[in-house]
Design a protein around this nucleic acid. Structure first.
Length: 120
DNA sequence: AGGATGACAGTGT
DNA sequence: AACACTGCCATCC
């Protein structure tokens, strides 16, 4: 039991996992945006930890989470880096030089501006 | 207790 | 556009 905060790290992880699970295929979200949507401000680094600690059974679409500038968080050339790009491209998301190309559409009524979609 | 680390972000140059 | 620096948050020596 937690004496100090009403929300434990585990609870926050669950909130984060829930948000990530809602990212539609063909779209991506930044770590910061996920944190914000989970009700956690400035917890982008926590999001990365949450994804790292996520049970495989959840089968989270972790590949739809990228940096704020659209770049893949994993080191270029790493196995996960390649896997993420592979899965994104399979969903129609354009990736150039390890960076997601934002869909320049005038209206994104959906989530925030930090959410891109497939090439329109 | 204090410093280093990381699937980050914002700002400045 | 690429880097460097600083701020953030939890975890691990």
């Amino acid at each position: 039991m937690n004496h100090q905060s009403s929300q434990t790290t585990e609870d926050r992880f669950r909130c984060i996992w829930r948000v990530v699970a809602t990212i539609p295929a063909g779209h991506v979200m930044s770590y910061g945006a996920v944190a914000r949507r989970a009700g956690l401000v400035r917890a982008s680094r926590l999001v990365s930890k949450a994804l790292r600690a996520a049970p495989d059974e959840l089968e989270l679409p972790w590949h739809r989470v990228v940096r704020a500038d659209g770049r893949i968080a994993f080191p270029a050339g790493s196995r996960l880096h390649r896997l993420q790009i592979r899965r994104l491209t399979a969903e129609g998301v354009r990736v150039e030089k390890g960076r997601v190309v934002p869909a320049s559409r005038p209206d994104d009524p959906d989530l925030d501006k930090l959410l891109w979609g497939p090439r329109s």
